[in-house]
Simulated assay, not measured.
Amino acid sequence: MLRVFKLLSNKRLFILLITLVLFIVVMGFSLGTRKALSWPENFLRDTTGFLQNVIYKPAGYVAGLFEDIGNLRNLAEENEQLKITVAQYTREQAQYNFIQSENERLQKLNNFTVEQREKYKYEYHIAQVVSLTTEPSNSTLVIDLGAREGVKPNMSVISVEGLVGVISQVSNFTSTVKLMTMMDINDPNSQPAIAATALTKENQTFGMIERYDPTTKMLSMNKIAPTDPIAEEDVIVSSGIGGLYPRGLQIGTVESVEVGEFGLTRTAMIKPAAEFQDWKELIVVFTSEDIK
């Protein structure tokens, strides 16, 4: 019996020694410089790679999905911010365009008044248009200058383009302007006729602007002498004769010249320089007599 136990003990010792030797050999192969892996290492590596591929690829897809969702959220926020920026830019651009337009318009008014003041020594007071009436029998507008600023009836009112009308009524703070579209020599309530001449022909051309035709939108310049050199495209201005309208106010341009009433005179059709639009500002002309 003792002999059997001894034999078994020797066998276990033998197996342990064999296992230890194999372990050392494997370690030697593992730690040594080799050009290729052993088949157990290959098997282990391939198995590990397969398991990693099976486990990590779906996990990578899920992680990528959440990352894409996060990117979409960021993109949506950036788009929203971009829309706000564009809207703000559009609003600021509109404000800039409005301010630029206002500056250009006021500069144009200022340049006009300076030029005319140097030319005829008149004073030009800029007025804001308060209201406008375009009824056929009452074409008038109201401006925000009145008796307090020295405005008087029959003062001429112009735009940058040309003559608009005359002051018909004055209160302390406002004045009513009767437009040239009301002009009709046969109507006692119309704007008075205008003694007119042509630029560069002041000593040769003369006529009376007496009527505005709403159908053709033309002014009629009558009582022109047959020998008068007036011609198409002449610029017509007030002559200053009669004292009501100051000299040199631009009225319009000659469109045509026709034989007048009874064939003794001629009539010129004048296209108004002022287009009778929705004005924002107009100019009241103060002559030297008005300034006193």
Results as ranks from 00 to 15, higher is better:
Met1Tyr: 13
Val4His: 15
Lys6His: 09
Lys6Arg: 14
Lys6Met: 09
Leu7Asp: 01
Arg12Ile: 15
Leu17Pro: 02
Val21Asp: 08
Leu22Ser: 11
Met27Ser: 14
Thr33Glu: 10
Ala36Tyr: 12
Trp39Cys: 02
Asn42Lys: 13
Arg45Lys: 13
Thr47Met: 08
Leu51Trp: 11
Tyr61Lys: 11
Ala63Gly: 08
Glu67Met: 13
Ile69Gln: 10
Ile69Val: 12
Arg73Glu: 15
Asn74Glu: 14
Asn79Ser: 12
Ile84Phe: 02
Glu92Cys: 02
Gln95Ala: 09
Ile99Met: 09
Ile99Asn: 09
Glu104Ser: 12
Lys108Phe: 06
Phe112Leu: 10
Glu118Ser: 10
Tyr120Met: 04
Tyr120Pro: 00
Tyr120Gly: 04
Tyr124Glu: 07
Val129Thr: 11
Ser131Leu: 04
Thr133Leu: 13
Asn138Arg: 12
Ser139Leu: 01
Ser139Arg: 05
Thr140Tyr: 05
Ile143Gln: 02
Gly146Asp: 03
Arg148Tyr: 15
Asn154Ser: 12
Met155Pro: 04
Met155Glu: 01
Ser156Thr: 10
Ile158Tyr: 00
Gly162Lys: 01
Gly162His: 03
Leu163Gly: 00
Val166His: 03
Val170Met: 02
Asn172Leu: 12
Thr176Tyr: 01
Val177Ile: 11
Met180Lys: 00
Thr181Gly: 05
Ile185Glu: 09
Ala193Thr: 08
Ala195Asn: 11
Leu199Val: 14
Thr200Tyr: 08
Thr200Leu: 07
Lys201Cys: 03
Thr205Gly: 05
Gly207Val: 00
Tyr212Pro: 07
Pro214Gly: 10
Thr216Trp: 00
Met218Gln: 14
Met221His: 05
Ile224Asn: 01
Ala225Thr: 08
Ala225Gln: 10
Pro226Ala: 03
Ala231Gln: 15
Glu233Asn: 15
Asp234Gly: 03
Ile236Tyr: 04
Val237Glu: 04
Ser238Gln: 02
Gly243Ile: 09
Gly243Met: 07
Leu249Gln: 06
Ile251Arg: 00
Val254His: 01
Gly260Lys: 09
Glu261Gly: 06
Phe262Glu: 15
Leu264Lys: 14
Leu264Ser: 13
Met269Leu: 15
Ala274Phe: 08
Glu275Thr: 15
Gln277Asp: 12
Trp279Val: 02
Lys280Phe: 06
Glu281Arg: 07
Leu282Tyr: 04
Val285Ala: 06
Thr287Gly: 08
Ser288Pro: 00
Asp290Lys: 03
Lys292Trp: 04
